[in-house]
């Protein structure tokens, strides 16, 4: 059986392999950096004038934590399409025929994608600073905010790993995740305040972890000024705890499911 040290070492080898690909395939870097910049600029300047945020807060302050949240979730879909691609090209077969740790391929994949998401966040934060977003909290709180985004996106990566192993075609993974993730990240407080939502949608959005991750990031970056009314649902009153609970739940379900699926997956 494989020891923990062996699993870590195998995972590191796979992570390195995936990061080399990032270095050599410009598309990935473009996806990870340019599209977030584009999103920040579009929302800031196209919708920024039309959307009123309650309280005395600029739209840039409200928007950036939302964009962070949406972008890292979309960033995690790369996990699914990359695994489907490896499966299609026979690489998963090769890995499965090696005496390596059974979970290393998925750990290495998700960790590499976590790195890509960290890069996206850094680029977005810099762009945000240019268009008027500021961190008003302490360094510690800000770090917790960034970590929350990464932890949540990491859990989504494991969910996408199962999708990739099941769907097996990178294009289909992309299309399918787009159809699901687009509404989930929009029916949330990512871009607009929830006050304007119709009732059913609003209830969904209030308990949607995407809302709570964004809400928590806003709190941790100090982007909610004094005077903004306190939310009246538990999830939004305790967004950090609620979001971490979701991340833990997703990991607890999808790590074992994905590893199990990986062990039984042969190409074609």
């Amino acid at each position: 059986m494989t020891t923990l040290a062996e699993t870590l070492s195998d995972s590191a080898v796979i992570t390195r392999r995936n990061l080399i690909k990032v270095k050599r395939v410009p598309d990935l870097i473009v996806f990870a950096t340019l599209s977030p910049i584009m999103f920040v600029l579009l929302f800031r300047f196209v919708f920024g004038g039309a959307i009123n945020v309650p309280g005395n807060v600029s739209y840039a302050e409200f928007l950036l934590p939302g964009i962070f949240t949406q972008t890292v979730i979309f960033g995690s879909t790369i996990t699914g399409s990359s695994i489907a691609e490896d499966l299609q090209k026979g690489l998963i077969d090769r890995f499965r025929s090696l005496p390596m740790s059974r979970s290393a391929v998925l750990i290495g994949r998700t960790v590499a994608d976590l790195g890509l998401n960290a890069l996206s966040i850094a680029v977005m934060a810099l762009t945000g600073l240019v268009v008027g977003w500021r961190i008003h909290s302490s360094v510690g709180e800000a770090i917790v905010g960034f970590l929350l985004l990464l932890v949540f996106s990491y859990s989504i990566s494991w969910l996408m790993a199962l999708v990739g192993l099941t769907v097996r075609t990178p294009e289909v993974v992309n299309n399918a995740s787009f159809i699901v993730i687009f509404p989930i990240t929009f029916v949330a407080s990512t871009f607009v305040p929830l006050e304007t939502f119709p009732t059913v949608l609003r209830t969904f959005a209030e308990w949607n972890p995407v809302s709570t991750v964004a809400q928590s990031a806003r709190e941790l970056f100090g982007n909610i000024p004094a005077g903004v009314p306190e939310p009246d649902v538990w999830s939004l009153q305790h967004p950090l705890a609620y979001s971490l609970l979701w991340a833990a739940l997703i990991l607890a379900v999808f790590v074992p499911l994905s590893v199990r699926k990986y062990l039984r997956t042969a190409s074609r």
Binding site: L91, D93, R94
Partner: peptide, 15 residues
């Protein structure tokens, strides 16, 4: 103790 070469060359083309 085995080596496997599958029907489709399973090499990572980016490496």
């Amino acid at each position: 103790t085995i080596g496997l070469t599958g029907q489709y060359a399973a090499v990572d083309e980016y490496l």
